[in-house]
Design a protein around this nucleic acid. Structure first.
Length: 907
RNA sequence: GGACGGCUAGCUCAGUUGGUUAGAGCGACUGGUUUACACCCAGUAGGUCACAGGUUCGAGUCCUGUGCCGUCCACCA
């Protein structure tokens, strides 16, 4: 074995072997319970980020743990076509070549985009393999695959037939760069520092009299069709019905009253531009106002804006209109103004509210989706996200699902050529299209990407094809066991998947039918949802490409190994809390692997051969008669740890589980048990039992760790001879109680007192080491100690003497019956220990130290005494608490006595 | 404007239903290669648990309020 663990070779070799053995294959197996996870499909052309590392490590842990526990496990991978993101990239690249998508035409562009995807796509799936992800790669799905696309269209058609889908001219969020509509969820509100312009509008029946309006968007004035006031605003009693002159593209427009106007904002008067503001649009509807759209789809102004501004970009036009108004004397004032502006998530430019003809979806199964989560049929971890989820569902708005893009699932609606598209009589809606295609033309738009990925849990398993569903085990694996994702897509994806599952899984149901709880349980796409935190950099900023603060996970794997990275990231990922990334933690992950490697190496070096041995055989090698207190203690801790980790995994408390394993493995096993075993291994009867105990502990640690660090545990599993030809992937770590039963039947009954005794001995050893260290004595300098203790404790101490001497680095430990004079001392639960120094010590320093200790103990004692003399405490507190206080008091009183004695001995 | 989360050692965080003397890792400092590991071992220092009230025999933990940081939601031009 190498001196240090070398992950690279091991990882490549084992991953290859696992794949070859078909270890990751997820197939229905009637003999086993099912466990399934569908991956949140990353963008097909994306690369691995730290967020993916966290997310997928968790999924891998769940999948691997399920395999160990004997489930037929499916972790289904795949990618998303990422409509806008991908199309934007492809267009950018075309632009570099001096071309546009229109040069290629729709067919040509799609061809080109596919080539581009195939060339740059799928990198992330390779990277996931490097991370060790145990996905069933044979089942990889892409949202533009033929079968998947079919499912997407089928869903659309069904929703249409049930009246959930409608077409309408409505206000949408328009991205002038991508030139498409967006859903509300794709709009990011950002605070902006803009200007508020005060503009005057002249009353046409009273020349020279003006009304004043504040606006942030003077470039839309040409689209004004009215001025509005609040009906109860007493400042303007007689304005309604009169008219004003629009200062740009001059025209007469009416003054109306509408209670949507805020009296207290600005001048209390609002200009109404129905084409360019959602609120204005609503008011316009109420008052039957004209709609004048002065913008083109790319955000430039059109001819309706007038010759002065037509063709200008909207931001340029803002400046130009202000200038013009200033010239005309209509600009009264401008002041700084902070407001929120919606930005396009992808293109990062302000969106335009725009009136356009789009397809909308009224969400199906909203009430059932609420119930599913509110009543715990789907459980959220951490639970608090249920509130966010329910709040969104309670205020849910219809979903604009059409996108003016080419890259995606084309909407399966055809219009009769030459006829009015608005009239549903001229529509054909089906998956396969009309029988006489020559008379029809298909809708040009595609569906929102999320309107395909919301089907992910069912469409990746064959839906809606009966045969495929059977073959792929939809009914076997569905509902999936857990979903692991970020809370940032709770609306985009999680909520929508729940509604899609409720609507589509199982027999179709009428829109007016409400699903029963039983039916909901069958239809929900997952039982548990684990929301990860967001990975931030050391300064707490979100990791992003533009900031360049995100390390490349592949570099980290290169440096620390995949296991090191996985261990590191999991150890800092508390449930649902954001995560401060620090490379040091990854380093610790690597160090942990190295420690595991080295203690195994140490075990290998013991002359006793490790042969292939099962759990039963290891237990058989333990001779109950040879077990000492250390053996009892470590085995008790092992049993405890097995149970604790089992519970923590169930509760998705990964970092706590790791911490628990760490404590057992590093502090108890390596630092204490293995160190102590060194003296036993020099000879004596206990050696083979001691090695067997080591084997048992190591074996269980490997099993517990395997989901987190799959590579090194598989490697050591074989090296240490636990495998018997079988991969660690299929071995159940079992619980502590199960292990206890197995040991009991081999005659091993653990002494529950051993743990406490071990801790007491450790405390004594620590004190002895501290006595040495305080005087700068080297660890290995052989010094003499004396101790003062009662009969019981002395007996225990004598029993552990050999290991104490070797742990401390001492030559002797002698019992004395009274405090020896002139020696530095420490008082422990075990009694007092004195360091025998032939040379003189710094008596004053010792006195000071002991006096400080006396004062500390006196403080403790008086506070407990006070508590105990308080009748309401002794009456009301539970007996074990009172008993604990008494015990503490007597313990401390004894310690105080001994410390005082040690102090006196120095005088 | 509303909702949620965070505030515990220099740093990053544990602390389960209130209950002995609030913990870990890193960093700092001191010392160390005895049959694994310097990616290691031993030891030391370091905390008014954000603040103010309240409930209780007892509060880091429960309640009320305040402050700061963060996230999400919301049509104030």
């Amino acid at each position: 074995m190498e001196k240090a663990y070398q992950p690279k070779e091991v990882e490549d070799r084992l991953y290859h072997k696992w794949e070859q053995d078909g270890s990751f294959q997820g197939r229905p197996d009637g003999q086993k319970p099912a466990y399934s996870i569908v991956i949140p499909p990353p963008n097909v052309t994306g690369v691995l980020t730290m967020g993916h590392v966290l997310n997928n490590t968790i999924q891998d842990i769940l999948a691997r743990r399920a395999r160990q526990k004997g489930h037929a496990t499916l972790w289904l991978p795949g990618t998303d076509h990422a409509g806008i993101a991908t199309q934007t990239k492809v267009e950018q690249q075309l632009r570099k070549e001096g071309k546009s998508k229109y040069d290629l035409g729709r067919e040509g562009f799609l061809e080109h985009a596919k080539e581009w995807r195939d060339k740059h796509g799928g990198i992330i799936l390779k990277q996931l393999r490097k991370l060790g992800c145990s996905c069933d790669w044979e089942r990889t799905v892409h949202t533009l695959d033929e079968d998947y696309s079919h499912a997407v269209l089928e869903a659309f058609v069904r929703l249409f037939n049930n009246g959930y889908v409608y077409r309408g001219k409505r206000m949408v969020n328009w991205c002038p760069v991508s030139r498409t509509a967006l859903s509300d969820e794709e709009v990011i509100m950002k605070p902006q520092n803009g200007k508020l312009f005060k503009i005057r509008y002249e009353l046409t029946d009273a020349p020279g009299e003006y009304l004043y309006v504040s606006t942030t968007r003077p470039e839309t004035i040409m689209g004004d069709v009215a001025l509005a006031i609040h009906p109860e605003d007493e400042r303007w009693p007689a304005l309604k019905g009169r008219k004003v002159r629009r200062p740009l593209q001059t025209a007469e427009i009416p003054i109306i009253a509408d209670d949507a106007v805020e009296k207290d904002f600005g001048t209390g008067m609002l200009k109404i531009t129905p084409a360019h503001d959602p609120l204005d649009f609503e008011i316009g509807q109420r008052h039957d106002l004209e709609i004048i759209d002065v913008f083109n789809e790319d955000g430039t102004l059109n001819e309706l804006a007038g010759p002065d501004f037509a063709g200008m970009d909207r931001f340029e036009a803002r400046k130009a209109t202000v200038e013009k108004l200033r010239e005309q004397g209509d600009l009264i004032d401008e002041e700084d103004h902070a407001n929120n502006v919606g930005f396009s998530e992808r293109a990062d430019v302000p969106i335009e509210p725009r009136l356009s003809e789009q397809w909308f979806l009224r969400y199906p199964r909203v009430e059932e989706a609420k119930r599913a989560v509110a009543e715990g049929m789907i459980r959220y971890f951490p639970e608090r996200w249920t509130k966010t989820y329910l709040h969104w569902l309670e205020n849910i708005q219809d979903w604009c699902i059409s996108r003016q893009l080419w890259w995606g699932h084309r909407i399966p609606v055809w219009y009769r050529k030459g006829e009015n598209r608005r009239d549903p009589k001229n529509w054909h809606v089906s998956v396969d299209g009309p029988a006489d295609p020559e008379n029809w033309e298909q809708d040009e738009d595609v569906l929102d990407t999320w309107a395909s990925s919301w089907l992910w849990p069912i469409a990746t398993m064959g839906w809606p094809n009966e045969e495929a569903m059977k073959e792929q085990g939809l009914d076997y694996f569905y509902p999936t066991s857990a979903l692991v994702t970020g809370p940032d897509i709770i609306f985009f994806w999680v909520a929508r998947m729940i509604m899609a599952g409720l609507e589509f899984k199982g027999e179709p149901v009428d829109p007016t039918t409400t699903l029963s709880d039983e039916e909901i349980r069958k239809r929900i796409p997952f039982r548990d949802v684990y929301f990860t935190g967001i990975i931030r950099d050391a300064k707490g900023r979100k990791m992003s490409k533009s900031l360049g603060n995100s390390p490349d996970p592949l570099d980290l794997i290169e440096k620390y190994g995949a296991d090191g990275l996985r261990h590191g990231i999991m150890s800092i990922a508390p449930k649902g809390q954001d995560i401060r990334f620090s490379e040091e933690r990854i380093e610790q992950g690597r160090n942990f692997c190295n420690k595991l490697w080295n203690v195994s190496r140490f075990r290998q070096m013991a002359d006793e051969q490790t042969k292939e041995s099962s759990l039963d055989e290891i237990i058989k090698r333990i001779n109950p008669a040879q077990l000492n207190q250390d053996d009892h203690a470590i085995l008790l801790r092992l049993v405890e740890t097995l149970d604790e980790v089992d519970r923590l995994y169930v509760e998705y408390e990964f970092n706590s589980a790791l911490q628990s394993i760490y404590r057992f493995f590093w502090n108890d096993l390596c630092d204490w048990y293995v160190e102590n075993s060194k003296s036993r291994m020099r000879g004596g009867d206990g050696k083979s039992t001691c090695l067997a105990v080591q084997d048992l502990c190591l074996r269980q640690v490997l099993l517990l760790l395997h989901p987190v660090t799959p590579f090194i545990t598989e490697e050591l599993w074989k090296v240490l001879g636990f495998s018997e030809g079988q991969s660690i992937q299929w071995i159940n770590p079992g619980t502590g109680s199960e292990l206890s039963v197995a040991m009991k039947s081999a005659g091993i009954v653990l002494d529950p007192a051993a743990l406490e005794q071990m801790l007491a001995v450790r405390e004594l050893v620590t004190s002895m080491r501290a006595l040495k260290a305080d005087r700068n004595l080297a660890n290995n300098s052989k010094v003499e100690f004396s101790y003062l203790a009662d009969e019981d404790r002395a007996a225990l101490l004598e029993a552990h003497k050999t290991s104490i001497l070797s742990s401390v680095g001492a030559a002797g430990l002698h019992r004395v019956l009274e405090a020896p004079s002139g020696m530095p001392a420490l008082v422990t639960d075990f009694g007092s220990v004195y360091l025998d120094l032939s040379s003189g010590i710094d008596v004053e320093a010792e006195k000071k130290r002991l006096a400080k200790e006396v004062a500390h103990l006196e403080g403790l004692i008086s506070s407990v005494e006070k508590k105990l003399s308080n009748a309401s405490f002794t009456d009301k507190a539970p007996p074990q608490v009172v008993e604990g206080a008494r015990k503490q008091l007597s313990g401390n009183q004894e310690k105080l006595k001994e410390t005082q004695a040690a102090l006196a001995a120095l005088q």
